[in-house]
């Protein structure tokens, strides 16, 4: 059972055709590409930074870069890998700049949103106790994610919430699959330690690669 936001991998329309159309001056091709990738890019940025506003800014930056560089885009690489790479780099840069500032927890907008999504109703119709418990879970998970390093978090969210395979993650981050697995194991170990008291189980060792 993975993230509730895990979707099936969609079949992408021919990106080559869209890029060719864009190079021919048809800017509607760019909008089609944005339409295909905007949610993926936004959510990846959100998963890494934990901030809605930053995620929007980062996703827009990614598409602006795409707009400027699409004519020079190397046809032998995947568009998605390229966009994810830019997103990860921009997100980690944002985290570095923000590292001195206190991290904010889920804000009110996000709290309401989460409750409604989890429990399938408007906030007014939710049972207060249930909504409080679900908010607590989200808070704990969100805080636990912030406790692991940016690199570990990046690899973890890419695998767990963005459904990218281990070899895809390795390609995007330009590291080996072994390194991806090491980072994942470390992230899982730290998350378990953070959440152990809340999960009610004692901390036990997770195998390291």
């Amino acid at each position: 059972m993975h993230s509730s936001n895990r979707g099936k991998k969609e079949m992408q329309p021919n990106e080559q055709i869209l890029v060719d159309r864009f190079c021919g001056g048809d800017h509607s091709a760019f909008h089609e590409l944005v339409g295909q990738y905007k949610k993926k890019i936004y959510f990846l940025a959100y998963d890494i930074t934990g901030d809605h506003q930053e995620a929007e800014d980062i996703s827009q930056e990614v598409f602006i870069k795409m707009f400027r560089s699409l004519k020079n885009f190397r046809r032998d690489s995947k568009m998605s890998s390229w966009l994810y790479q830019i997103t990860v780099n921009a997100s980690i840069d944002t985290l570095r700049k923000k590292s001195s500032k206190p991290k904010r927890s889920i804000d009110e907008f996000e709290q309401i949103n989460i409750q409604e999504q989890l429990l399938g109703g408007t906030v007014q119709s939710l049972d207060p106790q249930r909504s409080a418990e679900s908010s607590q879970i989200q808070n704990h998970i969100s805080q636990a994610l912030q406790k692991i390093s940016p690199k570990e978090r990046t690899v973890f969210v890419m695998r767990h919430y963005n459904d990218l395979k281990l070899n895809e993650i390795a390609e995007i981050l330009n590291i080996t699959v072994g390194t991806v697995k090491s980072l994942l194991f470390r992230a899982i170990k730290k998350l378990r330690k953070e959440l152990s008291s809340y999960m009610g189980n004692p901390v036990l060792e997770v195998p390291n690669e």
Partner: peptide
């Protein structure tokens, strides 16, 4: 038992819900 531990941690993390910004956000995004 080690695998079950890891699995329980990942299943717990799977309970995370990303806040969905909403239709208006996406409609005006472009």
């Amino acid at each position: 038992s080690k695998f079950e531990e890891m699995k329980s941690t990942l299943q717990f993390m799977g309970k995370r819900v990303r806040p969905e910004p909403g239709k208006i956000f996406w409609d005006l995004y472009e």
